[in-house]
């Protein structure tokens, strides 16, 4: 009953970009992905939480016309936590840059070797 296409499109776009950035190798991209996904999640919370309305101010807006304050309180907390997370991740990527000289996620060499060995054996067996 409160469905609105614009919000749905906005959320789809935000999540799509967020997912795309999440699959990059650069830590900076991954952090930006989490920030954007955080925005999307907060908005999704509001969209799922109820119909939009007036601000939840008692005495100014009649209770029937108010938007639900509960999802707002949840999202408020989430915004602050996302900020904390972003700061910490930034510090991590900075440390990675200092130690490794880049801020990119590398493939696990051992896993890679295992995979090559296994696939190689399979090919030999196939021949």
């Amino acid at each position: 009953m409160t469905v609105d296409v614009t919000t749905a499109v906005l959320l789809g776009g935000l999540y799509g970009v967020g997912f795309y950035l999440l699959m990059q190798r650069s830590l900076m991209h991954i952090i930006l992905a989490l920030v954007i996904l955080g925005h999307g999640a907060n908005l999704l919370l509001q969209a799922a939480g109820g119909p939009p309305g007036g601000p939840a101010f008692v005495g100014i807006v009649p209770a029937a016309a108010m938007s639900d304050p509960l999802p707002q309180a949840l999202a408020l907390t989430a915004i602050v936590i996302t900020f904390g997370l972003t700061t910490f991740l930034l510090a991590l990527s900075y440390r990675s840059w200092v130690l490794l000289g880049h801020d990119e996620v590398q493939d696990d060499i051992e896993d890679h070797r295992l995979r090559r060995r296994e696939l190689g054996e399979a090919e030999e067996a196939g021949r």
Partner: peptide
């Protein structure tokens, strides 16, 4: 990524309805 975005958009519609 596009499939994920489309899924979330659909989810939004269902949730808020």
């Amino acid at each position: 990524a596009c499939a994920g975005g489309a899924f979330v958009a659909l989810l939004t519609l269902v949730f808020s309805s």
